[in-house]
């Protein structure tokens, strides 16, 4: 019974895709509260589609998705917004918002019809700003920020939404190594210290192996899921990419270019 209680996301035999085409099938995994999980896979295998499907922004083909022990379809848009927050790859329409204004939008599922912020809302926004080291930038406009800073703002907004589950689509693209690690460290801290469950897609397999509690390797058929060490032992990373170009080195947990 305890095991079920601790699970926040439960995916069983899920198929994803569009009405005319199935992109990936046979996806099953579950996430425990307070864990950090990465979805990795080759370009076009459906990482973003899976994330959008799990977030309820796109209809699934078949299978079951349960968030907080409730079926995804049974939740209204507003109820869902109180269970999961999202960081997407698409550009935000307006970058003329200040950092604080953008983060405050994360409180929308909790505010009244006019969106008035309560003392509690303001406290949460303040917490997010502090966690993501944005104190000095709070009154800056978003178009003045660097990519790394703006990514932190987007994640801070998701944190301000205060949901048990946070889904992020490629939060580390376009960033240099320093900022990639910074984001991953912050995500790890958010998961472990504030008991948030964080699921993100990434191409940084080596960094994900070092930071995540579990990983989902999306290959469209088997979709192995487990702890990074276990996945390495079972040699799942070796077949992730067509092996004539790169080879996985199990001792260092990185890919090497074939000479």
């Amino acid at each position: 019974m305890d095991v079920i209680k601790n699970q926040i996301l439960n995916v069983d035999n899920l198929s994803i895709g569009y009405p005319s085409i199935t992109i990936a099938k046979n996806i099953s995994f579950s996430l425990e509260k307070g864990s950090l999980c990465a979805i990795v896979g080759i370009n076009g295998v459906g990482k973003s589609t899976l994330l959008r499907t799990l977030g309820g922004l796109q209809a699934k083909k078949s299978g079951e998705i349960e968030i907080d022990n409730q079926k995804l379809e049974s939740l209204s848009t507003l109820q869902l917004a109180q269970k999961r927050s999202m960081v997407l790859t698409e550009q935000t329409t307006s970058k003329n918002l200040t950092v604080q204004e953008l983060i405050a939008l994360g409180r929308q599922p909790h505010t009244n019809w006019l969106g008035r912020l309560s003392t509690n809302d303001k406290k949460r926004i303040q917490q997010s700003i502090r966690t993501f080291l944005l104190d000095k930038l709070r009154y800056r406009k978003c178009h003045e920020l660097s990519d790394g800073q703006f990514q932190r703002v987007l994640i801070a907004r998701a944190m301000a939404q205060d949901t048990p589950l946070i889904l992020l689509d490629e939060p580390t693209t376009h960033l240099d190594l320093h900022h990639k690690v910074q984001i991953l460290k912050l995500l790890q801290q958010l998961a472990h210290e504030q008991n948030k469950t964080i699921l993100f897609t990434t191409h940084e397999i080596d960094l994900a192996i070092q930071t995540c509690d579990s990983m989902l390797i999306l290959d469209g058929n088997q979709n192995p899921f487990g702890e990074p060490c276990q996945l390495i032992e079972e040699k799942h990373f070796n077949t992730l990419f067509p092996s004539d170009m790169v080879q996985f080195d199990a001792t260092t947990g990185t890919y090497k270019v074939k000479k």
Binding site: R52, S85, M86, L88, E90, T92, P109
Partner: peptide
């Protein structure tokens, strides 16, 4: 318009973000 204020603010992030924030 006044009844739309909250949704309009969410639309500033784009439609997908707005939906993820609970806007119908």
């Amino acid at each position: 318009s006044i009844f739309s204020i909250k949704a309009l603010n969410a639309f500033l992030l784009g439609e997908n973000y707005a939906e993820s924030l609970g806007v119908s």
